[in-house]
């Protein structure tokens, strides 16, 4: 390839705007397609791609959180408590990233992509909040309340230890792959801890930035974060996700979501294939 730097940055910017836009419209997050875009689309080394993606994840999480925090859905205590698991996990993941071969990391990445696509295709019904909480949850003051049609409704928190363990796993994947691990965080909070949908979504978003920051420092010191790659991607994804949020607010169109899930699934297979054949 004999692209000039300016041309490369221009194309990357356009790709990142599209990724951010689709990610925000479908609720899947733009970060998840950055690594396949860079590695499969531009032949960028997986390590640079992971460093760039991690920074993008922090940007979108912080951008969205500034809006979410005001609405009073996110539970800062749950977020902070589970952050202990995700930050330790992220440090472990970043450590593993330094010793595992790129081929293996690409295969794990493909599997994580498939999981995200599958999770997002499942309906997420708002379950009625329960008032029962497990004893650890009460001790940690995790149960709280959130606004429903202008009224505050109390909710309980269950299976804290299972949620904490899953969060550790989410942290490892985040640190290893440079993604937000939103799908795994939702599994921990929705399915294990039985939090209301809006609370788990916004709290997960709050946590994604902190988790990503926990491995970003390590990756910086390893020289994975390249300013010339990160510049167009971060600006593009921020602009794209802002535009996506403006267009549709919080609604998630079904057809678009399905198409994006299929795209992610195809990318997953390509990542696994390239990882297995040693092309990454």
């Amino acid at each position: 390839m004999h692209l000039t730097l300016g041309a490369l940055d221009g194309i990357l910017f356009a790709g990142a705007v599209l990724a951010g836009f689709l990610g925000s419209l479908t609720g899947l997050g733009g970060g998840i397609v950055i690594v396949p875009l860079l590695t499969l689309g531009f032949g960028v080394d997986l390590r640079y791609a992971i460093g760039t993606s991690l920074i993008t994840v922090i940007a979108t999480s912080s951008g969205a959180a500034s809006a979410y925090v005001r609405e009073g859905y996110s539970n800062i205590r749950i977020g902070m408590f589970l952050e202990i698991a995700t930050t330790i996990g992220a440090l472990v993941g970043a450590f593993l990233g330094g010793i595992l071969s790129p081929g293996i990391i690409a295969i794990v990445f493909g599997l994580a992509l498939m999981y995200s696509a599958w999770m997002s295709s499942r309906p997420r019904a708002e379950h009625a909040p329960e008032h029962t909480s497990d004893p650890i949850a009460r001790k940690l003051k995790l149960p709280s309340e959130y606004p429903v049609n202008g009224e505050m409704v109390k909710y309980g928190v269950q299976n804290v230890s299972a949620g904490f363990g899953l969060m550790g796993l989410a942290g490892i994947l985040s640190g290893l792959l440079g993604i937000g691990s939103g799908a795994m965080k939702v599994l921990a909070m929705d399915h294990a801890m039985k939090l209301p949908f809006k609370v788990s979504t916004t709290t997960s978003n709050f946590m994604i930035g902190v988790t990503a920051a926990a491995s970003a420092g390590i990756y910086l010191s390893r020289g994975y974060i390249d300013p010339v790659l990160a510049m167009p991607v971060v600006l593009g994804v921020l602009l794209g996700s802002l535009a996506g949020a403006k267009v549709l607010g919080r609604s998630q169109p079904k057809t678009l979501r399905l198409i994006f899930s299929i795209v992610i699934f195809v990318l997953a297979i390509e990542m696994i294939y390239n990882g297995a054949t040693g092309n990454i």
Partner: peptide, 24 residues
């Protein structure tokens, strides 16, 4: 950075890592 945008981009397909000044 615009003036350097016309140079050929570095080979990102091989990992060399950032220079030492960019690592802390």
């Amino acid at each position: 950075f615009i003036p350097s945008a016309y140079s050929v981009h570095p080979a990102y397909h091989t990992f060399r890592g950032e220079p030492a000044a960019f690592r802390s």
